[in-house]
Write a protein that binds this DNA or RNA. Structure first.
Lengths: 216, 216
DNA sequence: GAACTGCCAACTGTCGACAGTTGACAATGC
DNA sequence: GCATTGTCAACTGTCGACAGTTGGCAGTTC
């Protein structure tokens, strides 16, 4: 029998709240009222508080003493700083992936790229889900659990920022797919240095795109 | 009047527990009993639980459902993985520091290096405190708050690993000081690439030293 | 003697209630 | 009209108690 992933109420509350924050159901800038949310989830304040503290440690909530928890609202500087961290982590991951990738990793990477292309050719937008999947697959290929964990947290915060943004424009999507292909090639070649360089350029582009999106 | 840094009991408990874990007062592998620690700190289990969860999010404690919190006990693979993360972060920080450092930063870096040398020449060991201070100063010079935050957490976990280890041997200390000097030079020159390279070599050396320390 | 079963103490997970703080609003004085 | 002060409701911080789970131990069976 499969043990439930989260028996504890706190764990369930984390999942529900995280979803609500990431989808923008709880919009940036708004506050999380403990008693209100607790009875909405049908739990007491204890577990909910633990859930809130947990999400705060992930950067998805901001705690203010005696005031409560807020969904952080980012400005341009935050985005830049966050992408500095993301770049550091994902460039390192790209390097490691280039030197550790297995054939299975390469197959997976190609699959994600292919699916993106198919979507794009069919006139559909490049779903962010596939972008995330690509990066996740690359991270997995790096086989560095600590880096992977940190990247997951950073990705989440990027998703949070995105939730307040409009969708990407097609030229950006095209460039992203090209970057991904180039990354796969570098990883396949085992060229760590090039993988890092391409990743840096890619993320720099993505960051710039997000910054322009913010000014609309 | 200076406002207390942590009014909340949970915040104070975090500080106390962190100290006890990092100094090895609560040794790796041992469990943290909630009721016992709570009454030792003179608080109830609520705030203590929050403190425990917080430290767990920092990687200083490991939570096991229905069993409690344990101080993690690392093996060689953990150390390697942790240093992959540390390398990713500190190399990026070194690059950024090289391009952003001010004259004040350089003075500070020189000061720390000088103090280390003085200590060493006086026949005293290179205190780990100064090593930490050097890296912290370099991180500050990078002016990237998110990277700085993550590095702090990683440093902490390294300290936790060290707490179970013997002291460094003099040859290693000498090499570390040379590395630091070289790093300062690269940062002073604004040579981001070299700063990253030196940092990578430095951390690789430190990691290797820790791994050999573990096998004694 | 070894393996299994049922019980028990210890501990974590959860809850409801009380206490202290904060920000806002109304009342007051200038 | 504006600043100041007093009051209050809402909310977070904290506590003590109860419930559920876990691992270990004694008792039983073969």
């Amino acid at each position: 029998m499969t043990p439930p992933l989260h028996l504890s109420l706190a764990g369930q509350a984390v999942d529900v709240l995280r979803e609500q924050v990431l989808t923008g159901e709880i919009p940036p800038g708004s506050r999380v009222n403990e008693v209100e949310v607790a009875q909405k989830l049908g739990i007491s304040r204890g577990p909910l508080r633990e859930a809130i503290r947990h999400l705060a440690s992930e950067g998805l909530l901001m705690l203010v003493p005696h005031r409560g928890a807020f969904v952080p609202d980012a400005d341009a500087d935050d985005v830049k700083a966050l992408f500095e961290l993301r770049t550091a982590l994902e460039c390192a991951a790209a390097e490691l992936a280039a030197s550790r990738r297995t054939d299975v990793d390469l197959v997976r990477l190609h699959e994600v790229c292919e699916e993106s292309r198919r979507n794009y050719r069919a006139g559909q937008p490049f779903p962010y889900r596939l972008d995330l999947a690509f990066h996740q697959t690359l991270i997995d290929a790096a086989r560095s659990p600590h880096i992977a964990g940190q990247v997951r947290l950073v990705q989440q915060r990027v998703v949070l920022l995105r939730s307040a943004l409009l969708d990407d424009d097609p030229p950006h999507q095209h460039a992203s797919m090209d970057d991904h292909d180039e990354l796969v090639q570098a990883v396949a070649d085992g060229d760590a240095s090039r993988a890092s360089t391409v990743m840096r350029r890619h993320l720099s582009r993505v960051c710039a795109q997000m910054l322009t999106s913010m000014n609309r």
